[in-house]
Nucleic acid binder design. Structure first.
Lengths: 252, 252
DNA sequence: ATGCGCTGTATTATTATATGATACCTGCGT
DNA sequence: ACGCAGGTATCATATAATAATACAGCGCAT
C-alpha cells in the first residue's frame, strides 16, 4: 500500500496501529470502526483487527452498546512514564509549584517539539479554556512566548531558518503570522531574555516566557506564565511576574 | 511464540509493539536495544525492527550517541487526547481549580481503573514527592481514600468481591493490607460519604476523598485531596476541607 | 598494541501471519 | 416489512514479519 519505507526494518503493521491511536484528538473523542477507517485511510478489515487488538491489550476502551472506541487509561500511564523520562520535569516541578503559589497565576513548563511548543506540565490557577488547562497540548512555536524565547537562544543561522521555515497558523484573529514581525519579537526576546505575547492562541490571554538554558546557552524549553489581559497589563507583568519567572528559569 | 490468542482478529505484531512502549516506567526511563529485549522478552531482531519503527513514527526518541530509546513528546499528545475523550475531566477541571485555590492544597481527580486508582488530573499546591505531582500514576484502589469511597458506592456483592479479591501491595510500612480493616474503612466511607486515609502510599500524607456519583448512585471516580500530616489533623480536615470537597463532588 | 566481549546494525531465506474480499448478522429508520 | 449502515466472522493468498546470522564499532583488559 504505502510504497515508501520498504525497509525491512520497518514494521508497517505497527505503524498502522499507531495511526489508529493518533486518530483520536480534540474533535474525535470517540470513534466507530468506520470512523477509524475513514480517518486513518486503512481498510475496514485492518481497522477491525488493529482496533480489536488495541482493545484486548487495554489501549482502547470499547463502549459495549455503541461499539465505539475511546482512549483508555493506558494513555495516561504512558504520559506518566514520559514524565519520569524527561529529567527537566522533575527538576522544574518544585519551582513551578512555588511560582504558581506565589503568583496565583497559571504556570507551564513548555518544550520545543519540532517546530511546535508542547506544554509538558501545567499548573492552572484560574479558570480558563479547557485546552489551556491540560498538559500535552501543542501549538506552533513561532508566535508563542515560549517559542520565541527558545528560538532567541539559537545561533543566528538556525534562528533565521526557524523564522523563515517554521509553520505558523492563526488561532485567533490576532495571531501574529507576519514573519518580519515575528523576527523583531524574537530579536527583542534575545535582548531582554523574555517574551510577552498577547492574543496568540486564545483571545484575552497574555503569555510570558523565559528560556531554560543548558550550560552552552542553548535552549529547548521555557517556563511560561499565562494571565488574563483583563487583569494584567505589561507594566505590571514586568514588575510583578517577570522577576520571579526569570529567577526560576535561570536556576534550572 | 505466544501460543494463546491465535485469533485471526488479533494482530500480534501490534501487541508486541505496545510491549515496547510499556517497557518504560519509573525505573526504566531510557532503554537500550538489549534492555528492551530483556524486559519485553522479545527477540533482539524483533525489538530492533519494532523500536526502529516506533522511532521513525515519532513515538520514541533515540539518543544519537548512546543509541538509547526514550519516550517522546507523542506520549503527552496521547494523554491530551485522553483528556478530551473523558467527559469528566472537562466537567471537573474548573471545580478542581477553584478547590485548589480555596484550600491551598493538592487536589486530584481520581478514577477507577480495574482494581487500581489512576490519578487523571493533579493540581499540586505544595512541594511533594514527584510521583504525587504528575498525572497518570496508578495505585491499588483498596487502601487509598479515593478507592475506598468509590468501592463504598458499589452494591453489597460487588463491594464484598472487591474487598476479597482486589490486589493490595504495601507501599509504606503503614499501608493497610488487612482486608478486615479495609472492609471496616469502606463501610465507614459508605456511611459518611467520605474516606480519610493516612500513610498509605507516602509517609506523612493524608488522603481525603469524596465520590463522584452518576445519577444511579454508582461511582467510578472521586475528588481527592492530599495534605501533609505535619500540618493537618483529622478534625481540622473535617471542618476546613471536607465541606468543600463534598460540595464539589456532589455537583459533578 | 592486540584480542575479547558487548551492543547496535544490516542481510537473508523461510513461513508464519497480516491482508482484504466476501458473506453474515444485527439494529435502526422509513 | 424492508433496506441500509455498521459491526462481525471466515478464508485463500501472498505479503511482510521473523529469527538466524554475519558484520561493524566501541570499550576494556591483557
Amino acid at each position: 500500500m504505502t510504497e515508501i519505507k520498504q525497509n525491512t526494518l520497518f514494521v508497517s503493521t505497527l505503524a498502522k496501529g499507531l495511526r489508529i491511536l493518533q486518530a483520536f484528538d480534540e474533535t474525535h473523542t470517540s470513534l466507530s470502526l468506520t470512523g477509524l477507517a475513514q480517518i486513518t485511510g486503512l481498510d475496514k478489515s485492518s481497522v477491525q483487527r488493529l482496533a480489536n487488538t488495541l482493545h484486548l491489550e487495554g489501549m482502547l476502551d470499547k463502549d459495549p452498546v455503541t461499539r465505539r472506541y475511546r482512549p483508555s487509561h493506558a494513555w495516561l500511564s504512558l504520559a506518566y512514564s514520559y514524565f519520569w523520562s524527561d529529567p527537566l520535569v522533575a527538576r522544574a516541578m518544585p519551582k513551578l509549584i512555588d511560582l504558581s503559589q506565589r503568583l496565583g497565576e497559571t504556570v507551564n513548563l513548555a518544550e520545543l517539539s519540532g517546530d511546535r511548543i508542547i506544554y509538558v506540565t501545567r499548573l492552572p490557577c484560574t479558570r480558563t479554556v479547557f485546552a489551556a488547562s491540560v498538559p500535552g497540548r501543542t501549538v506552533p512555536a513561532l508566535p508563542t512566548s515560549a517559542g520565541q524565547v527558545i528560538i532567541a537562544t539559537f545561533p543566528p543561522e538556525e534562528r533565521a531558518a526557524a523564522i523563515r521555515d517554521w509553520h505558523v497558523k492563526a488561532h485567533t484573529r490576532h495571531t501574529t503570522i507576519d514573519r518580519k514581525t515575528l523576527a523583531k519579537q524574537i530579536e527583542e526576546a534575545a535582548k531582554t531574555g523574555h517574551a510577552i505575547t498577547t492574543d496568540q492562541m486564545i483571545l484575552g490571554e497574555i503569555g510570558i516566557a523565559c528560556a531554560i538554558c543548558t550550560p552552552d546557552g542553548q535552549s529547548r524549553a521555557a517556563i511560561q506564565c499565562s494571565v488574563s489581559s483583563h487583569h494584567w497589563d505589561k507594566a505590571r507583568i514586568r514588575s510583578e511576574i517577570l522577576p520571579w519567572l526569570m529567577d526560576a528559569a535561570n536556576t534550572l
